[in-house]
Amino acid sequence: MVSIGDETGVTVTFPKGFHPAEQPIPAAVPAVFPTSPNPMRTTGPLDVAPLVDLGGYGGVARAGRPPAFTPNARRRRGRLLRRPGRPQVSVDNNRCRLYAICQMEAPASFLVARDGRLYYDTAPATTELTRVRQAARLCPMQAIALRAEPR
């Protein structure tokens, strides 16, 4: 198991072999996802790729150059890339009890996979923020924290 920790104390845990630094990012998202009517309620290859690699840019460090579609991201080598002004999402692993309410509220940003782990987007898209906030409000264990972009 490999974890990336950042200074906020958040850990994003990836299944072995799927650390972004270990694995090239899959060029195409597995076909099951975009075609199924409700991607989060199917049993596709949920436990094989962290959510950030399934949709867009998730604020987790990646090997190589930052993707072209994040022009505002501050490029700093060896650091997490963040877009300014977007809240950082973190889930307290010690509290989360996998009730998956967050997944019901914001299926594009949270995923309780079959391996019994929660995958989540640490920097959800602006269009997702309303849902992410609702997920944070309704989380039974109040494990989801949104905090403004530091610095």
Binding site: R41, M104, V112, R114, G116
Partner: peptide
């Protein structure tokens, strides 16, 4: 049951 319950919610 974790997320397995969600299917039945539908």
């Amino acid at each position: 049951a974790g997320a397995r319950l969600l299917e039945y919610a539908d």
